[in-house]
Design a protein around this nucleic acid. Sequence first.
RNA 1: CGAGGUGUAGCGCAGUUUGGUAGCGCGCUUGGUUCGGGACCAAGAGGUCGUGGGUUCAAGUCCCGUCACCUCGACCA
Length: 476
Amino acid sequence: MAKDNQFVKEIADIETDFPRWYTDVVIKTKLVDYGPVKGTMVIRPYGYAIWENIQKELDARFKATGHQNAYFPLLIPYSFMTREAEHVEGFAPEVAVVTVGGGETLAEPLVIRPTSETIIGEMYSKWLQSYRDLPILINQWANVVRWEKTTRPFLRTSEFLWQEGHTVHASEEEAMEEALTMLGVFREFAETCLAIPVFTGRKTEKEKFAGAVATFGMEAMMHDGKSLQAGTSHYLGQNFSKAFDIQFLDKDGTHKYGYTTSWGVSTRLIGALIMAHGDQRGLVIPPVVAPVQTILIPIAAKKEGVLEAVEKLRQELFAAGVRAESDTSDNSPGWKFNEWEMKGVPLRIELGPRDIEAGKMVLVRRDTHEKIEAPIENAAQTVKALLADIQANLLEKARKRKEERVVTANSVEELLEGVEKGNFVKAGWCGCRECEDTIKEKTAASARVIVEGEHAEKCCCCGKEAKHVVLFARAY
RNA sequence: CGAGGUGUAGCGCAGUUUGGUAGCGCGCUUGGUUCGGGACCAAGAGGUCGUGGGUUCAAGUCCCGUCACCUCGACCA
């Protein structure tokens, strides 16, 4: 394989120095910049455009499953946090608290939301009267703040953008179904739009959301074989409905507590797609969410007719629904090739005097680097077909890696060997916390999800009868 | 929170060991020639060396404090 380093001088080696590669790429491609406050990031236009595309796709899916958008306040009375015991225990260490407003010390401190179960629960208790009001199916697009100790752009920041769905149902079954449905929506979205195949399943007690009865997670395999939690869906049972008095009068004339769920994905998804698809030349953005799907590069731009031909082609593509841009800057073509490859644009079109004369264009795929000559006629059709093929190819590549890099282990030693080679490891587990902690301690791997429909004889740690097969991995 | 590292022009760095006029590359501005994988020539602009104090005739350099960021670990979307 050709040395990609000859093209990219300014990005750390992706195989040997992956963390550094990541920060190099997100900064140099202008996805983000660091904010002045520790752990904060500025999402720059190129990064925000990816988020907008993610929002658009997800929002359509939420609406299609019956949800409506709303917006709840950023500031939450501190006392709300303390109403659900596990919840406050989990979140208190990382909340930011406002104590002064208008120059005066506040009577009650206000929490900047780390998540909104509490304030939304408070409002739902007001809104819910009758079984006829159910289900309540609301989503909000918002920012949240969690005072994290170590941070990295997109993956963990003090403030991040996300969506959080919060629903109330009349029965346990219905709420559980909702939690699983939304997990499925996340999964389908990840595969269709981000080209990231994921593992989904229930989380262990240790890993579940603070205040949930059950948490279901979506885990994605990154380039280095580590796992990234890319989304979660929680079945909250009656924990929050009891803490916030979310009751309704049922058909039988008695008051009952509702069953609630919450589910969300965040700007971390941008980090996920970077670390899932990127290569030595930089980003590789799946066409569905790419801010620029096709970049047109004029060759010998000052020659007569070149810029005109490029602009005509760009407009034609744009009219056909392709996010196409042209780079008419003074930089040399070679510089532009590298720049736009680093920025992960799925498809490049080179158009020079020779092509124009021959009625052709040169297309170059970001995923395979393949050069293709095609007639300028019907360009939109050609481009759309290629973009679809690139999307499919990225998913297929990721799927192959996901399948190849899952191994099974019968002992902690085997588990360690597996994760050290950059694999996900399936192993039997007795279900006790001690074994989970021991495994974490000895292998630096954590239980990502419980695998459904598979059985193991023994716990890989203590040797007792296994209750579950668990997927272990080192995680971000 | 533990260990290590870095703060000097927009970016990347040298200069600190041994105190003595603030440097280099890239980028930026102007003009010209170029253009199919990071072009070239010429002329320019740009810095209270993270920050506060101290030592000294003199501090980017030495001493004390402090802040921020990065990397690796323990906890989290």
